[in-house]
Design a protein around this nucleic acid. Sequence first.
DNA 1: ATTGGGTATCGATGAGTGTCAACATAGACG
DNA 2: CGTCTATGTTGACACTCATCGATACCCAAT
Lengths: 110, 110
Amino acid sequence: MDAGAVVPCCPPITAGELSQDDAEKMAVMFKALSDPVRLRLFSKVASHPGGEACVCDISDVGVSQPTVSHHLKKLREAGLLTSERRGTWVYYRVAPSVVAAMSAMLDLRS
Amino acid sequence: MDAGAVVPCCPPITAGELSQDDAEKMAVMFKALSDPVRLRLFSKVASHPGGEACVCDISDVGVSQPTVSHHLKKLREAGLLTSERRGTWVYYRVAPSVVAAMSAMLDLRS
DNA sequence: ATTGGGTATCGATGAGTGTCAACATAGACG
DNA sequence: CGTCTATGTTGACACTCATCGATACCCAAT
């Protein structure tokens, strides 16, 4: 399902007052990254050779398997990761729009 | 007392697997930005002329005054904002290290 | 069809969070 | 002093969340 990939959005955070709408969209993205387990999962996917990683490659983060699955789902729902099943394994990769969205939001040069 | 300003930290999120320690530090920062009200407060401070804003300038975000104060405290504790009282008013500004920390974490070179 | 390993969902639980009304504090000014 | 305005703190409540064990689902191989 990967409910409404929310990421592609939003003006630079320092450019002016955020609208209620943009603030809510950005909050979804930041909330997805606000947990240490999710950050480690995301960084493992992002830094994996080939740009994608099997769950079995990244699930060693100190919590149980259901919890890993739960966090991956949240990253998916936030639009940060995409998943694809190929045979026995499920592969995750960073959603294409994320890179652009992040650097746009944090356009920190004046 | 602005408990332990946690922000200055951390390698790029895509550079490799995050350590448990770095992940926890980054999570603190993202968690502080994971609420729409806090995002709007932060952006109002960041975009305010002169680099600082009185609470009275930014407190119109749709929640009560105690709630505004509560969110500003969280942003302070996360090391994102600093505050200074001058006479009747309290002024907030973006913590100096935050800009560098953010762009370091999100070094998204294509 | 059955077995087995990889992954997702369900249900429960304890911890954490956003919100407000009420109260407290701090400074300015008479 | 007392009062007024600007912020911060406290306590309570409803709500969300991270976590796990148990279970279900998916697919390959036997």
